[in-house]
Amino acid sequence: MNLIIRNERAEDIQQIAAVTVAAFEQEVHSSHTEQFIVDALRKAGQLTVSLVAVDEDHVVGQVAVSPVTVSSGAAGWYGLGPISVLPDWQGQGIGSSLMKAALTELQKQGAAGCVVLGDPDYYNRFGFNAHAGLVLPGVPQAYFQALSFCGEFPAGTVHYHPSFSATE
């Protein structure tokens, strides 16, 4: 394996969609619209970070990061996801490498912090934790987690970009 993590390029877009479909195909908690979300974020100019994991010329993973709003007005917060790795490539540290690279890039850009919706057992290892004052409506608190780059956590309701409602 000769894995490289880099920014997405225009020629990666079809492969990113295919990776995303494959990665979420068997996920029972998936809306199976993740590929549409990534595309809608891209078209809306809301992909702050889009990194791909590439082996030779093949995209095997991708992570998307986009701005979120917090009802308190806290600025500089982003949402990580979706993050996708081809099923045959999972369990090899590719998702972890994408996560670390995305978080590093956010810090370089001066972000205040990042939120993620997902399995606490997975995201805790990157420093994400649930915070009682930070809420995503309709989601159990344990599954909505945050990581602050500046030590402080905002309080309020988090809203993702409307692209997260994309269905095609």
Score class of each variant (00 low, 15 high):
S31W: 02
E8A: 13
D12P: 12
E25I: 07
G138T: 10
L80Q: 08
V116W: 05
A111W: 01
G156D: 01
A22D: 07
N2K: 15
A142Y: 11
I94Q: 04
H131K: 15
Q90K: 14
P87S: 04
W89V: 03
S148L: 06
D12M: 13
E11D: 15
Q15K: 13
G91Y: 03
N124K: 14
Q141G: 07
G151F: 01
V135G: 04
S71W: 09
Y122P: 11
Y160P: 06
D119S: 09
L98S: 08
A112M: 05
F164D: 01
T104H: 15
H32K: 04
R6I: 02
Q15F: 06
G95F: 04
V70M: 11
Q141V: 11
S96W: 02
F144Q: 08
W89I: 01
F126N: 08
I5K: 09
V116T: 07
D57Y: 11
A142P: 11
Q107P: 00
W77N: 08
G73R: 14
V59T: 06
Q35Y: 00
Q92P: 02
L98E: 06
G81P: 04
W77R: 06
H29V: 10
Y122W: 13
V115M: 08
A10I: 11
D119Q: 12
V63S: 02
S163N: 02
N2H: 14
A75R: 14
A155G: 10
R6D: 01
Y160T: 11
I83E: 09
V85Y: 00
G76S: 07
V59P: 05
H161M: 07
L106H: 06
Q26S: 11
G110S: 08
G113S: 05
P154Y: 06
P87I: 04
A111R: 01
A74D: 12
Q141T: 12
I83N: 10
V65I: 14
K100Y: 00
V21D: 00
S84E: 12
A130M: 04
G45Q: 07
V158D: 01
F144S: 07
I4G: 11
A10H: 12
D12Y: 13
Q145P: 03
H58F: 08
T157E: 11
